[in-house]
Every structure is written in structure tokens, then in C-alpha cells.
């Protein structure tokens, strides 16, 4: 009996181990080879931190990082404000006509193939003669990130509505604006921030849409990495990828922390 249980157990753990290996081995290899003291990523020659050092002296790379950060911040800000407004409409007027459609339309960018998104945005910008610059790119990123901010903020606002807090505030003499500012906004703040973090991540990592519509001279981090890859996967790219991975994980952890139920804190 015990022997069978052990063998069954070890079969399961082998399976789980294989699954995790499949998921994380590539990342581990990338991580290890970012410390490899060799130009080519084939054999292990020795440990070095020089690739990381080089990253910070690559002016083009630093420039791309700056562009990506500014872009992600702008897009996250736009997506958060729009997401808050859209969610507020849904929470305050639960029964308006066409609510289902209104709701569904916001998740379309989530399901649309990014290539379609990129092509249609490009066609749109060119047709209405909007210059392909930082501004139009930030708007495009905000559009892609909008479903994320809405889903985060809407859930919170709906639960706030169900607890009738705004009603209570207005009952005590607060105008709609005062009720929103003093009650809803402070309580929705963690959800807004958590949505903004997601939006930031989505914008920061976006490649396809950016590739289509980024004008000349706008080089974001993913675009830069792509152009570096044309000359082969160097340890430098490994090092860069590790840095990006760390940043993304940090943002996601922040998101998880903020989207926890405030009552459980």
C-alpha cells in the first residue's frame, strides 16, 4: 500500500516538475547565460557581470528605456482616467439601455488580434492625418490597456455601489461630486492604482501594435530588443531580458498587493 502511494506520488511530482521545467527552464537558461563570459551563447566560459555593466553604458538602450517608461506612464494615466469614468457610468446607472453592449465593447481590444489592431490604428492615423508621434502612440497604448483598468476599477465600484455608500453620503447632504470625492474615490483608489500598474505593464511590453504605428525615431524597449536580435542573441540581450523580467514581476506583485480585498487586510 505504502509503496504504491509513494510511486503514485512520485509520478505526480515528476509530472509537475516537468511542467514547471517546461515553463521556467528557458527563463533559467536566459538568466544563467546573462552571466556567461563569452560573446556566443553556446558554451559556458565563466562568470561575469560585464553584460549588465554594458547595458547601462549603451546610450541607445537607455534612450529606448526612457521612451518606454514615459510612454507607459502616459498610457497608464490616460487608461486609468478613462477607465474610472467608464466604470463610474456602469456603476451609477446599472439599468441603462445598451449596457451589455457598452460593457462588451470595452473588452474588444482584449480579444482583437494585435496585428489587426496595429493595422487598423495605422490606417486610421494616416487617413485622418494624425502624425505618428509619441502622442498618437500613447493613445494607442491607452486603448490596449483600457480593458485592464476597467476590469479592475469596475469590480470595486460595483461593490461600493452595492454597499450604498454614495447614497448614504448624499442622504447626509453631500452633492454627487462631494460623495464621489470623499467616499468613492478614496475607497476605489487601490483598484485604480492596481489597474494603472497593469496598464503600465501592458504598454511597456507591447511590441506588435507599436511596431506598426511607431513613427521614425520612436524606439521603445521591445523594438530596440528586436533590432538587437537581428545580429543574434547575445548575452547582452539576456541581461536586458532579465532586467525587464524583474521589473514586470515587481509591477505584478504590486498589482496583487493592491487588488487584495481591503477588508481582509
Amino acid at each position: 500500500m505504502i509503496g504504491r502511494r509513494v510511486s503514485r506520488f512520485s509520478a505526480l511530482s515528476t509530472y509537475v516538475a516537468a511542467l514547471y521545467a517546461f515553463l521556467y527552464l528557458p527563463l533559467a537558461v536566459m538568466f544563467v547565460f546573462s552571466f556567461n563570459d563569452a560573446r556566443r551563447n553556446v558554451v559556458w566560459k565563466g562568470f561575469t557581470l560585464s553584460w549588465y555593466g554594458r547595458l547601462f553604458h549603451d546610450a541607445e538602450l537607455i534612450g529606448a528605456l526612457g521612451t518606454s517608461l514615459r510612454l507607459a506612464l502616459t498610457a497608464a494615466a490616460i487608461a486609468s482616467v478613462l477607465g474610472l469614468l467608464a466604470s463610474y457610468a456602469m456603476a451609477r446607472h446599472p439599468a441603462f439601455k445598451g449596457r451589455q453592449t457598452y460593457n462588451a465593447l470595452f473588452s474588444v481590444p482584449l480579444m482583437m488580434p494585435e496585428v489587426v489592431m496595429g493595422v487598423s490604428l495605422l490606417a486610421f492615423f494616416v487617413r485622418v492625418r494624425i502624425p505618428l508621434d509619441f502622442g498618437s502612440l500613447a493613445c494607442a497604448h491607452a486603448l490596449i490597456a483600457l480593458p485592464y483598468t476597467i476590469s479592475s476599477i469596475r469590480a470595486r465600484l460595483l461593490s461600493l455601489r452595492d454597499s450604498r455608500l454614495e447614497d448614504a453620503a448624499m442622504d447626509l447632504g453631500a452633492t454627487e461630486w462631494q460623495a464621489f470625492r470623499k467616499i468613492t474615490l478614496p475607497l476605489a483608489w487601490p483598484a485604480i492604482f492596481s489597474g494603472a500598474l497593469l496598464a503600465f505593464t501592458v504598454s511597456f511590453e507591447d511590441f506588435v501594435t507599436t511596431f506598426f504605428i511607431a513613427g521614425i525615431g520612436i524606439v521603445t524597449m521591445p523594438i530596440k530588443v528586436y533590432s538587437m536580435m537581428k545580429f543574434g542573441v547575445t548575452p547582452e540581450i539576456n541581461a536586458l531580458a532579465c532586467c525587464l523580467l524583474a521589473l514586470t514581476m515587481l509591477l505584478l506583485a504590486g498589482n496583487r498587493l493592491l487588488s487584495r480585498d481591503p477588508a481582509a487586510r
Binding site: R164, D167, A169, D171, I183
Partner: peptide, 11 residues
């Protein structure tokens, strides 16, 4: 003024 069913206190 109203006393709400589930209190609706500001948390």
C-alpha cells in the same frame, strides 16, 4: 436622513 439596511458606514 436614512438609516440603511446594511448600515452603509464609511469604512
Amino acid at each position: 436622513h436614512t438609516v440603511f439596511q446594511h448600515y452603509a458606514l464609511f469604512p
